[in-house]
Simulated assay, not measured.
Amino acid sequence: MEERIARGLAALGLTPPPDAAPKLAEYGRLLLEQNQVMNLTAITDPDQVVDLHFLDCAALLTLGVDFRDKSLIDVGTGAGFPGLPLKILEPSLRLTLLDSLGKRVRWLESVCEALSLDSVACLHARAEEQALAEGFRDGFDLVTSRAVAALPLLCELCLPYVKVGGLFLAMKSVDSGEELNQAGRAIAKLGGRLLPPVDYEIPGCGVRHRVVRVEKLSPTPKGYPRRWAKIQKAPL
């Protein structure tokens, strides 16, 4: 995996720290090992783990967004994507991994310890509840999420975390045009502005994905996010 990771990062034009490829390879090994007893990923081929997880996440670093010394919360992180690859590739990042499943969060803590990663908080919480907590609301330079929910719902979960002037980066498929159209009202209501999405190709496999970018213009109004049942029943 390490050699494939190094080739892919070079193809993306990235110059990561010398230990990035070995750490990502070890992360991949730990992921596939744990996946035998816990449902972390449907992707079990090592080459596909590199392409569809690690290089897919690494592509966020090619968008012209400055991740250096920034605070980032990865909402609904699952097995740590995209947050952990971003931290490995940009060690100055101050990262919070948030997930609603406790056993995933405990595994992520063990991975961070095994990889000697600092400035990473692994948080077991529901996104719509944690966004109301002091220090979290309007508290992060960057917020990421990867295929957690439809974009109108995702914006209500994630935009409350973004500082004014910060960015929400949602990783989506290239056929997400209808979601973009439907999310416009929610984005405006929550204090954001939709920027042009960016499509990219993962090197080595020809798969194309999209990053939806939302800039935070003003604090999210009180009352948002609502309870999850309400968000689902009546999307903005």
Rank of each mutant, 00 (worst) to 15 (best):
C122N: 05
K172D: 05
L157G: 09
V214E: 03
R106W: 03
V174I: 14
L157C: 11
E26Y: 14
R146K: 07
G83Y: 00
L31K: 06
G76P: 07
G102T: 11
A150G: 11
H53W: 09
P197C: 10
A25P: 08
S145D: 08
G76Q: 00
L60T: 07
E33S: 12
D175E: 14
P82E: 04
K87A: 10
R208G: 07
L14A: 11
V143H: 07
A79D: 02
R68S: 15
E178N: 09
R68Y: 15
I43V: 15
L14M: 10
T77I: 08
L190H: 02
R94Y: 15
A127S: 10
A229L: 11
H53N: 14
L24A: 12
V174C: 12
V65R: 05
A147F: 07
L12P: 13
G139E: 01
S100V: 02
A121K: 06
D118Q: 15
P221S: 02
P18R: 01
R185E: 11
R213H: 08
P219D: 08
D56P: 00
P46C: 06
M1F: 08
G192N: 06
L142A: 02
G102Q: 06
L31C: 15
L9Y: 03
F54T: 12
I231S: 01
L63N: 09
V162E: 10
K70H: 12
R137K: 02
V50K: 03
D74K: 01
D199S: 04
I231H: 00
W107G: 13
P22Y: 02
A131S: 04
L157F: 09
V65C: 12
L40R: 06
